[in-house]
């Protein structure tokens, strides 16, 4: 790679800095510019090595397998797009993750708002409640849900004895999966939302009221737009994490309505079709990146960050 091409890019990337180190020999064509102090970037070498070995290399391996297993070609991708089940599973995975994101947002927003208006003591308590589940194993929590939600479990028992209905399909259904996932993912929505809401100037709402805005109008015209960075950050995190869930769909979902990770597991572990599994993986990765790019564009399209970029 030529030196000029490198300098044409942003100078912020440490990887580029490392490339420059290797490319620096004998290159003097650069116009006089203050020599960059590259020594601090040496500290990034361990991280760079770890990322390359444990993230980049496997990813490349996965991609190569998807086009070489069992033989060179795109047959795995042809299979991927021509088998209807695959698309149904992908749709279900994205749909469930989207649903969970919306539910998390609806629960987390009032909760995060509450955290911004209470005393320090109460806020610490609220934060503890949100963090507490994170310190428990997902498996344990999911098993607990199984006990609670099963057809002969306490919830269905209560429904039956009090309201005379049921048993409802609380488990082995999309409801069960969404419930379990929401419970696990809620902290990832609350925390970024809280940090965004906490930054909103508390005097803006009285100011809006003074200017003639009813409380509801003030919320939609001032508070909500200002909380958008938190909404985007939380939603993206929850959505992406939700796509990769395996244990919860496996235990709380129906075996007839599997999700993407289960499908991959099936292909690789069950049928030893490494090509199919890795193609599914690459497909998920690409789709996620596209979704992220779209969200990123949507959030940039608003005047949210304008005037703050400098």
């Amino acid at each position: 790679m030529g030196y000029r091409e490198l300098t044409g890019m942003s100078d912020l990337s440490p990887i580029r800095e490392l490339n420059k180190l290797s490319a620096a020999g004998g290159n003097t064509t650069r116009p006089t510019r203050e020599p960059r102090n590259w020594r601090p970037f040496l500290l990034l070498i361990p991280a760079f090595i770890i990322v390359s070995f444990f993230f980049l290399a496997p990813l490349i391996d996965v991609f190569i397998r998807s086009i070489t297993d069992p033989s060179l070609g795109i047959q795995n991708y042809v299979w991927l797009f021509t088998t209807p089940t695959n698309m149904v599973v992908a749709g279900r995975t994205f749909g469930t993750s989207f649903l969970v994101t919306i539910v998390c947002l609806l629960i987390a927003y009032p909760y995060a708002y509450l955290m911004t208006i209470v005393s320090d003591r109460t806020r610490n308590m609220l934060q503890l409640f949100i963090m507490l589940p994170l310190w428990t194993s997902i498996l344990v929590r999911t098993l607990a849900w199984m006990v609670l939600l099963q057809d002969t479990g306490p919830i269905n028992g209560l429904l039956e004895s009090v309201f005379g209905i049921g048993p409802l399909p609380l488990i082995r259904s999309t409801f069960g999966v969404a419930l379990g996932m929401t419970q696990v993912l809620l902290p990832f929505m609350v925390l970024p939302l809280y940090s965004a809401l906490a930054k909103i100037d508390k005097r803006l709402l009285p100011a809006a009221a003074n200017l003639g805005a009813r409380p509801v109008t003030a919320f939609f015209t001032v508070y909500l737009p200002l909380s958008r960075p938190g909404i985007f950050a939380g939603s993206v995190t929850v959505f992406i994490l939700g796509l990769g869930f395996y244990i919860i769909p496996a235990l709380l979902g129906s075996s007839k309505e599997i999700m993407m990770s289960a499908l991959m597991y099936q292909q690789i572990s069950g049928f030893l079709m490494w090509g199919h599994g890795t193609a599914l993986g690459i497909f998920m990765l690409t789709t996620t990146i596209v979704v992220l790019a779209l969200v990123g564009r949507a959030s940039k399209g608003t005047s949210l960050f304008a005037g703050r970029t400098k």
Partner: peptide, 27 residues
């Protein structure tokens, strides 16, 4: 407060950061 039709200037300005000057005044 929103029905009193009173103008108010706050100590910390309380301008809406996501709106331009003109949009603030249009509010």
């Amino acid at each position: 407060a929103h029905k009193r039709d009173i103008g108010m200037v706050f100590q910390n300005y309380a301008l809406f950061p996501h709106k331009t000057v003109a949009e603030n005044i249009a509010y």
